[in-house]
Computed example of a mutant assay.
Amino acid sequence: MKIRYLLLHAYGTGGTIRTVLTQAGWMAEAGHEVEVVSAVRRRTTPGFPIPNGVRLCALVDQRAGIAAPRLHSRVLRRLRGHVVPRGEPAAAYFTPEVEAAIARWMRGLSEGVLVTTRPALNLLAVRHASSRVLMVAQEHMNYASHRQAVQRAIRRGYGRFDAVTVLTETDRADYERVLPGARIVRIPNAVHPMERALADHTSTIAVAAGRLVPQKGFDLLIPAFQRATEAHRDWRLRIFGAGVKRAELAALAAPRVELMGRSDAFHRELAASALYVLSSRFEGLPMVMIEAMAHGLPVVAFDCPTGPREVITHDVDGVLVPPQDVDALARAITELIEDEPRRRRLGAQAVRTVEAYSTRTVAPKWLELFNNLQTARRGVDHTPLS
């Protein structure tokens, strides 16, 4: 069958991009005709390798004006299209030109499976995609984290999809509640396949990673780590990632905290660390945390909505603390710093836990979903899907 994945910016380096490219690679390996389509293009070279057998193309090439959305965001907001709600975090990307290009492309599809990967793209598919195409909406963030305007649009539009896929059981329950009768399927993201060296539990390095934005809660993590290491001044916290809050976080960062930027060898950084900290205010399914667990790192995480509790069993393969409780986070970090045997015990179980997020576990779920949708469609109209 033909399977098309539509991303906002497939040439970037975000977690959703990496996950979707991995999925596309699985489908190509299974013998399907796979295309990844980028709504916009702002880089010449993709941030991640494109899997063998996967075709990549873009609808709107913005390389000549790559800085425009940041330099002229007020102008872009006035030039917003008509479908994407203002509360969608990437709404500024969806100018009339971009929305029109996506609409033309979607209207030209007449077969196969279309997978859209964020609310803005999902809502455009509801408006413009042909009923001859099997439509699958991916949600990479939890329903409750969306702003009210986006939630209203989801409730109005997502019922048209052949399936809506979510990452956690909590989110499946939320979507089943607001979309009665819709097909809601929980398929977690898979850990990116790689050779994994196990963590060095004798290290004095803690690690965290993510975009430097309020969601990730690094403004809470930095003071928590400082408190935790007042009596352990040989310990260091390394925060990997880039984003709009870098300057503010740099002002908070003290001698034992380092803002590392992006890393092309992050798996090596994980292996060189003794524990991982997730300080997010909310999540979809925190894949970097799961990758850390795959390296045998014990995790201390805010019990935020959603994701950490779906993966971690408290004091079995990690530690959960109340959301945004800086004191509790500091205490949990201190306890792990002072207890190397516990770090080893939690890390060993973490490796076993994340087997549920391996490629060999997750990939068949996508194949089963697409095959089931294709069979159901054929049973209704007897029209084969290419």
Rank of each mutant, 00 (worst) to 15 (best):
L259W: 11
G284P: 12
L275A: 14
E283I: 01
S280R: 11
A254P: 01
M260D: 02
A274E: 12
V257M: 08
A272F: 02
E269F: 09
L285A: 00
I290H: 02
M289S: 06
R262K: 07
L270K: 01
A265I: 13
E283G: 03
A265T: 15
G261A: 12
A265H: 15
M289Y: 09
P255Y: 02
A272I: 00
D264R: 14
G284F: 10
Y276K: 04
G284R: 06
H267W: 08
A271I: 13
E283C: 04
E269R: 14
S279W: 11
M289G: 03
S263M: 05
E258Q: 13
M260S: 14
S273R: 06
R281H: 12
I290P: 01
M260I: 08
Y276E: 01
F282H: 15
M293F: 10
D264C: 03
A253R: 09
V288Q: 01
A272G: 15
R262L: 06
M293R: 06
R281M: 01
A265E: 14
A274W: 13
S273Q: 10
L252V: 04
E258W: 07
Y276I: 00
L270F: 14
P286E: 10
G261C: 10
L285S: 07
L270H: 06
L252H: 09
R256D: 13
Y276A: 04
L275M: 15
R268M: 03
A274V: 12
S279L: 08
A271E: 10
R281F: 06
G284H: 08
P286D: 09
L278G: 03
S273Y: 09
V288Y: 03
A272H: 10
